[in-house]
Simulated assay, not measured.
Amino acid sequence: MNVNKTTGLHETRHPKYKVPVVHQEDLDALRFEGYPLAIHTVPAADVPSVDFYAKLEPSDELYVSLHGAVDPGPARYPHFRRVESMRDRVSAFLSIADPTLELSEREDFGIGWYTGGPGWDPMDAVESIVRQALAAVGAKYVMFIGSSAGGFASLRASVRFPASIAFVQDPQTDVGAYYSGHRNRLFECCWPQWEQDAALVAHPDRFDLRHLFATRDPQNFVYYRQSNGDEWHSRNHAKPFQEALKSCTGTRDGRFVFVFEDGEREGHGKITAAEFDRHFDAAQGFWREARATD
């Protein structure tokens, strides 16, 4: 490990991404100067570290990727999604790993929805990182990008940022309505002192986006792509969420866009690179036009 003579921060080199790994000291006082492209790792009170990939060049817009399920095994954390597809597309980009996965050493625990545990919500850390990155690049607006569980997290994060957009693909919208095996592992690993049903009732803002949007009525934008070939998610997550949004002003203002389509490949999370590019361009265009008149 080397010490950067200019910043005084410790650095290593990431073997896969070939960028510096910067060992930050304070999650609420991140130092980005001198690091236009790096992975940052920051100690936190509830987990060993919060980790994120950052490309930070001056921009009016910041793009943030949040990931879904990861492969089981010892390398579950940290995981950075959309680095290859976004790094050369935009000037300011973050890919933030889900530190929920650090709450357990179980190698089969691979999906956490960025929901954390009873006394700790990692979305607070996500918000802090994003706000500091916005200031660092001079951006006014942020797009959250995610599919499946990353789409759930992106929708929840976007609520905290007026005029932001969540561009999501086949997301879950209610953790309590997801497959029991994955759901049970989350609560066994992260909420061991709680009955699952009690936790879902006590923390609806953490687990149920229908409740979150209906009660908060956020001033954000949503571009929601759902594959008809993923019929289970369409029936149990997309359509109930779309129905719940009818009470939000964004429905009347045209801030929420749902696209149900027959994807090139059937199944969950099967969006192709070409489909992602097409929908990203559509979401970006919709967002820019809509916020200009909002």
Rank of each mutant, 00 (worst) to 15 (best):
S49M: 09
Y53K: 02
Y35N: 00
D28L: 11
I96L: 12
R76F: 12
S91M: 05
S65H: 09
S59N: 08
A54M: 00
R82M: 14
Y53R: 03
E57T: 11
H67G: 08
S95I: 07
S85G: 04
H79T: 14
G34Y: 09
A44G: 08
R31A: 10
D46V: 11
V47C: 05
D71M: 05
S49D: 12
P48N: 06
G34N: 10
A38W: 02
L94V: 06
D26K: 15
A54D: 02
P48I: 07
S59R: 11
R82L: 10
F32L: 08
P74T: 15
A29Y: 09
A97D: 13
S59L: 09
E84Q: 07
P48T: 06
P48D: 14
E57G: 00
V42T: 13
L94F: 13
D60W: 02
M86Y: 08
R76V: 12
Y35G: 02
P72N: 09
F80P: 01
R81M: 05
L66V: 08
A38L: 03
M86Q: 04
D26M: 02
S95P: 03
A92S: 14
D26F: 04
I96F: 11
V70G: 02
A69Y: 06
L30T: 04
D28W: 13
P58G: 11
S85T: 14
S85D: 10
I96M: 12
P43I: 10
Y35T: 03
D60F: 06
A45Y: 00
F80E: 01
A92P: 09
E25K: 15
P74I: 15
E25Y: 03
L66F: 05
D28Q: 11
A44S: 15
A92N: 05
H67N: 13
P58K: 14
Y63V: 04
P43N: 06
A97P: 13
Y63T: 04
V47F: 06
E25Q: 15
D60M: 09
V64H: 01
A38I: 05
L62Y: 05
R89D: 09
V90M: 02
R76D: 11
R89H: 13
L66C: 07
G73M: 15
P43K: 07
E84I: 03
L94D: 06
I96V: 15
D28T: 12
P78K: 08
R82D: 14
A38Q: 06
S91H: 04
A92W: 07
